[in-house]
Computed example of a mutant assay.
Amino acid sequence: MTKPFWETKTLEEMTEQEWEALCDGCGKCCLHKFIDDDSVENAVTTDTIKPEEKVHYTNIVCDLLNTKTCSCTQYMERTRLVPDCVKLTKENLKDIFFMPTSCSYRRLYEGRGLPSWHPLLNAGRKSAMHKKGMSVRGKTVFEHQVDMEHFEDYIALWPLEDLD
């Protein structure tokens, strides 16, 4: 039996189609995040993180996210419509600290393999992921519903969960 591509290829060797298929579609990358060095007053947006800093996830999502399917409604245009939307690429994968530990790209980059709930291991369906609570479904508020001056009131710990 032939092994699946994610077990035989490095992330760098994957085709664009294989790369896109790795996304589990959880929607956690659409959560607003901030970096904090122990005080909300010092929170900043950045492309790097220092050892004394920590990434905080909120339950605030981008307005483009369909929170039922956990898919971007404007996927092909997302980086144009939302300039700070991060497009994960083979080139920026080394700076993946901002992705939760359950992220399939991060898991493969760290040598941990795909989780049992990943759609590629479940006939392409997201139902196992939703059932395990690994997606944003039912856990979020849209950014237009929130006073972003008080984003610290929306800090969430659940994105950090990483099953198997």
Rank of each mutant, 00 (worst) to 15 (best):
His118Ser: 04
His56Leu: 07
Val146Tyr: 03
Thr79Asp: 14
Gly124Asp: 05
Asn122Tyr: 01
Lys126Cys: 05
Lys131Val: 06
Thr58Met: 03
Leu157Tyr: 08
Gly138Cys: 00
Arg125Val: 05
Tyr105Gly: 08
Gln74Ile: 09
Ser127Cys: 06
Val136Ser: 00
Gln145Lys: 04
Thr79Arg: 09
Tyr105Ala: 05
Asn59Val: 03
His144Asp: 11
Tyr109Met: 14
Leu157Gly: 07
Val55Trp: 05
Thr67Gln: 01
Lys87Gly: 07
Thr73Cys: 05
Glu77Val: 07
Asp84Ile: 07
Lys54Asn: 04
Ile155Glu: 02
Ala123Phe: 07
Trp158Arg: 04
Asn92Ile: 03
Asp153Cys: 08
Tyr105Arg: 06
Gly133Phe: 01
Glu152Thr: 13
Ala123Met: 11
Thr79Gln: 15
Ile60Leu: 01
Met76Pro: 08
Arg137Pro: 02
His56Asp: 07
Ile60His: 00
Val61Lys: 00
Arg106Glu: 13
Leu65Gly: 01
Gln145Trp: 04
Thr89Leu: 14
Thr89Met: 15
Lys126Tyr: 06
Met76Cys: 08
Arg107Ser: 10
Ala123Gln: 15
Lys94His: 12
Thr101Phe: 12
Tyr57Val: 10
Val86His: 05
Asp147Ser: 10
Asp95Val: 05
Tyr57Gln: 03
Phe98Ile: 14
Val141Tyr: 05
Arg112Trp: 10
Arg125Ala: 05
